[in-house]
Amino acid sequence: MTETNTRVALVTGGTGGIGRAVVDRLAEDGFALAVHYAGNKAKADETVKAVEARGGRAIAVAGDVADEVAMAAAFDAVEAEFGGIDVVVNTAGIMLLSPIATLNLDDLDRMHRTNIRGTFVVSQQAARRLRRGGALINVSSSLTRLQFPTYGAYAASKGAVEAMTLVLARELRGKDITVNAVAPGPTATPLFLEGKDQAALDNLSKAAPLERLGTPEDIAEPIAFLAGPARWINGQTVYANGGIA
């Protein structure tokens, strides 16, 4: 075990659009990073090398977020490398769209496994392991408030993320650990852009008063705030959406 005074963050889905931006942003703040990935080791290794090239410390850890054994092993690896964990940012998630009336229930189960069970498993590990002064930030979605057609099942899964986040914040009374959720609006990530034509993207870009889609960096900024100086924000969902809702 390597003891360090540097704060340590584990970012699940750390190679995705928002996850990668969070890794880069927390590295700027001096965190040592654990970049979690589910399947793309090469992308995780590239992310680690990018942090190291800027003088930071990082490792890659693997595992299915919904598998409690795999995620316990991932947390073990982070603690073995850095001596502890101060911040967990849970960006891992999937989005499968369909009207509720015609949704394939296998797709519902897939989203439930990753978005709900996965968030629960990671939150459970974080609740057990975060050091005093730590923070857990889960990622919800502003789609829980927007009522967009075809997003019903996805929004439902993210509503569950918010519910467990706000309850956990109260359950950790006395541990000096904050628990919050960040709820992005339409954000230009590969996950969000997939399957949308230019007309749809143009309409979404105009929906917010700022008249653009969010960027992964827009979402990483409030996450970094909650991970660092925002110690008096606890048990909240922060809507990072440019004013769309």
Rank of each mutant, 00 (worst) to 15 (best):
T2E: 05
E3Y: 05
N5D: 10
R7W: 07
R7P: 11
A9P: 12
A9K: 13
A9R: 09
I18P: 05
I18N: 07
V22W: 02
V22K: 04
D24K: 12
L26T: 10
F31P: 10
A32Q: 09
H36N: 15
H36E: 05
A44R: 05
D45C: 00
E46W: 02
E46F: 02
E46I: 02
A50L: 03
A53K: 12
A53S: 15
A53L: 07
G55R: 04
I59P: 09
I59D: 13
V61D: 08
D64M: 04
D64I: 07
D64P: 06
V65L: 04
A66G: 14
A66C: 04
D67S: 13
V69I: 08
A74M: 01
A74D: 00
F75H: 00
D76R: 05
A80N: 14
A80T: 11
E81G: 06
F82I: 02
D86I: 01
V87H: 07
T91G: 00
A92C: 01
G93I: 06
P99K: 09
N104F: 01
D106E: 14
D107L: 10
L108T: 08
L108V: 11
D109T: 15
D109V: 10
D109H: 10
D109M: 11
N115F: 03
V121L: 01
Q125E: 15
A127Y: 09
A127K: 11
R128A: 15
R129G: 01
R132G: 05
G133T: 08
A135T: 14
A135W: 04
I137Y: 05
I137S: 06
V139T: 13
S140R: 01
S141F: 13
L143W: 11
Q147F: 15
Q147E: 11
F148M: 12
P149T: 10
G152D: 12
K158G: 08
G159E: 08
A160V: 02
E162R: 07
E162Y: 04
M164W: 05
V167W: 09
L168E: 08
L168K: 09
A169H: 12
R170Q: 15
E171G: 02
E171V: 05
K175G: 02
D176N: 13
A181H: 12
A183P: 12
G185R: 14
G185L: 13
P186M: 08
A188V: 09
P190Y: 09
L191A: 14
F192Q: 08
F192L: 14
G195M: 10
D197Y: 07
Q198V: 15
A199P: 04
L201K: 10
D202I: 09
N203V: 13
A207P: 03
L210P: 01
E211P: 00
I219D: 03
E221G: 06
E221D: 14
I223F: 07
A224V: 12
A227C: 12
G228V: 11
P229D: 09
R231S: 04
R231K: 15
W232A: 06
W232L: 14
N234G: 11
G235W: 11
Y239A: 09
A240D: 03
A240Q: 04
A245K: 13
A245M: 08
